[in-house]
């Protein structure tokens, strides 16, 4: 089979709704695009642990503490599933992490904004994770098997993230004047970054056409963004909350809530690494990685010395029963 024939057969498989599995022939570009997309997604989950993680110690009730630890733990788990999917394509975690920590890899720019109050935790859960669910539900239909399966697993857990956030926002919006002000301020800061999560306008999105043809993306950025806006605005208004968009209006004929212009300069600045927290977040990950080096080496050294010689704890029951 020629390269051209292989490509046609590949695209025909996708058109038939088949899933590509690890080991199947795929265009090199498909492999590279997917590794880029999946690892970016994984990095987003990992970096995303930090803005919320820092509020765990200050969560204001025992239940909120438990919920937040569980949520951040989920995010680590999601990163884990996604790195696995990228690994099936031949990427290694050492390389992917190296790219992230050397600022060569991108991650969702929404995680480069600071979390300034407890209300941010609620708003991130409801808005940011709510937006992620819309995107991920689409990706769960992805043509690459391991990615689709990772997405399904993630979607199942993400609903909890959105609902716990919504619960916080509802309580704050109906609470004391201080709480109301806190949550409105959080929404004012997170509304536009969340909308930007859906990516550039369709007309400016250079990767999209190819990703659509290859069944990786099945709906456009603007389409998904509109779904999100239509979901959020009625609920926010019902709670007495507003969004920082003077141009927001309801369009009778389509039933769509139409938003004002997005500040794309801000978006590209943050994507390129100049957001308020880019440097800080990566520095934190670098430090954790460096500080952990002796740990990873020690564990590897033990495995080399003791595994397979019958002296490991799995084969030595008496050690475990002490």
């Amino acid at each position: 089979m020629t390269e051209e024939e292989r490509l046609q057969a590949f695209e025909a498989r996708i058109a038939r709704g088949e899933k590509i599995e690890p080991g199947d022939w795929m265009p090199e570009r498909f492999r590279k695009q997917l590794i880029r997309m999946i690892s970016q997604h994984a990095h987003s989950e990992i970096v995303g642990m930090l803005p919320e993680g820092k509020w765990i110690t200050r969560a204001p009730t025992l239940r909120r503490k438990l919920i937040l630890i569980a949520k951040v733990q989920d995010e680590a788990g999601h990163g884990q599933y996604l790195y696995h999917a990228a690994e099936t394509l031949g990427a290694t975690r050492e390389e992917m992490l190296d790219d992230l920590l050397a600022s060569r890899a991108k991650y969702s720019s929404v995680f480069n904004y600071p979390t300034l109050s407890w209300a941010d935790v609620g708003v991130i859960g409801w808005l940011v994770d709510g937006a992620a669910i819309i995107n991920q539900t689409m990706l769960a239909k992805s043509s690459y098997g391991p990615y689709a399966r990772a997405m399904l697993r993630i979607c199942a857990e993400e609903t909890f993230h959105k609902k716990q956030g919504q619960e916080i926002v509802i309580l704050l919006s109906q609470g004391t004047p201080n709480q109301k002000a806190m949550v409105q301020d959080a929404i004012n800061r997170w509304w536009w970054p969340t909308l930007m999560m859906f990516g550039p306008h369709d007309s400016d999105s250079k990767n999209s056409p190819e990703l659509m043809r290859w069944g990786v993306k099945t709906r456009s950025n603007d389409e998904l963004r509109q779904v999100f806006v239509n979901q959020m605005i009625p609920d926010l208004h019902a709670l007495g909350l507003s969004v920082p968009d003077p141009k927001l209006r309801y369009h009778e004929e389509t039933g769509n809530w139409l938003i004002g212009p997005i500040d794309w300069d801000e978006f590209w600045r943050v994507v390129k690494g100049d957001g308020p927290c880019n440097r800080e977040r990566l520095e934190t990950r670098r430090k954790a990685h460096q500080d952990g080096r002796w740990v990873r080496e020690a564990m590897a050294a033990y495995a080399e010395k003791y595994e397979g010689k019958g002296t490991s704890d799995r084969s030595n029951r008496s050690v475990r029963s002490v």
């Binding site: 609902k163 919504q166 509802i170 109906q174 609920d235």
Partner: peptide, 20 residues
Amino acid sequence: SKQYKMHADFPTGQLMKEVR
């Protein structure tokens, strides 16, 4: 037994209804 991390533990539908 970790109910707090199951989405069914969050009655957001009910809460929104009450607010409305």
